[in-house]
Amino acid sequence: MKAIKVIGDKLSWEDCDDYTEVPADHVEIDVVWTAINRADLMQRAGVYPPPPGASDILGLEVSGRIAALGESVSGLEVGQEVCALLTGGGYATKVVVPAVQVLPVPKGYSLDQAAAIPEVFATAWLNLYQEAGLQPGERLLLHAGASGLGTAVIQLATAFGNPVFATAGDAVKLETCQQLGATGVWNRNDGSFVDAVKSWGCVDMVLDPVGGSYISEDQKVLNVDGRIVLIGLMGGRTAEVDLGLMLVKRHRLIGSTLRSRTVVDKGKVMQALHRHVWPLLSAGQIRPQIDSEWPITKVEEAMTYVAENQNTGKVLLKVSD
């Protein structure tokens, strides 16, 4: 098989060892598409190593066709078009993944569209409805609203009755957020979002991929019993927290990652997506937002594009036909 290898500060599309076997509860997929996530950039930079036992090949999601099934796998078929959530290994022509992390492509979807689903919608569901336990009518502040994850969160939250206030870095991205359902927006280049969110009506949850100085600002717009779910550190790994405010208003600060969770946990998230989100995708009520598609051999340029925040929605990589 072939895969992207990190050689120094360069990426190279090279031959590598093939999988020798498919464990009983796993599936082998011939990869057609994969996608770039911020975690891939962090791993390449050496600050987000894969969990113990995971592939060191980049890539946290794929779509493709099943090439082989482990002997205990049921409900899936060789040749079936599927998408999968990975712990690593997506930037390759083949991947072996636990069957519970594999789902059939939603009805009416192409393989490129399906590759844009697993990581962002699993992350959105996990953090909104499992970690934060959002209830209908509760309000959400979302940072980086035009990212691949952000565009999924806006649609999912809106579909489940949770109004969204989104921040982003330019007017075009904010317009996209509004088109997807955000009823409040703020350009982060215009300064603090606090007054704008308070005017909008404050929030019950913040989904924060930034961290750093944003945490103390997040606190200022949280209602009683509000939750901040921290999922990234783009703004730094240290923050000032008002413990008095946290105590009086019963705030919760929750750190959350998806990649390092157990196979059982990931399987539960994927099954929740199949039950609750797949029908919305198939009905066209929500859709993954695809910014651009690149051949896998142009991965260097594609990752630079994402690192420079030029994308609105997902950036996909074509691996094979």
Results as ranks from 00 to 15, higher is better:
G59K: 01
P23H: 14
A307H: 01
D291K: 12
G90Y: 09
R38H: 08
N37E: 06
V73H: 06
K10Q: 10
I228F: 06
Q155A: 12
I29A: 13
F160R: 00
L58R: 03
I215R: 04
N189I: 01
D9N: 14
W278S: 14
D291M: 00
C177T: 07
W186S: 15
K266P: 02
K10H: 09
G235K: 13
V319N: 02
K10F: 03
E131D: 05
V6G: 10
F121D: 01
L140E: 06
W186C: 14
A302T: 06
E301L: 01
P295A: 00
D208H: 02
L280R: 02
S320L: 02
L258Q: 08
V210T: 12
D30M: 09
E119T: 07
L140S: 04
D30S: 15
I296P: 10
D218L: 13
V194W: 14
R259K: 14
H276Y: 11
A3G: 12
V221Q: 05
D40K: 10
L317G: 12
K314V: 07
F165G: 08
V82T: 07
V97I: 03
H274P: 02
S110F: 03
W278Y: 11
A307W: 00
D9F: 12
V248N: 08
L58T: 11
A68D: 03
T20S: 11
W200F: 15
E138H: 09
L281R: 11
T297R: 06
E14A: 13
T297Q: 15
D208F: 05
E300K: 15
A124L: 14
V78Y: 05
V197P: 03
R261D: 00
E77F: 08
C202Q: 13
G88A: 15
P209F: 06
M246Y: 00
K298T: 14
P98W: 07
V197H: 04
C177M: 12
S282M: 01
Y305G: 06
A54D: 05
Y48N: 05
D9L: 15
A45P: 06
L60P: 00
L247C: 02
E119H: 14
A168Q: 10
D265W: 01
T158G: 00
Q271C: 04
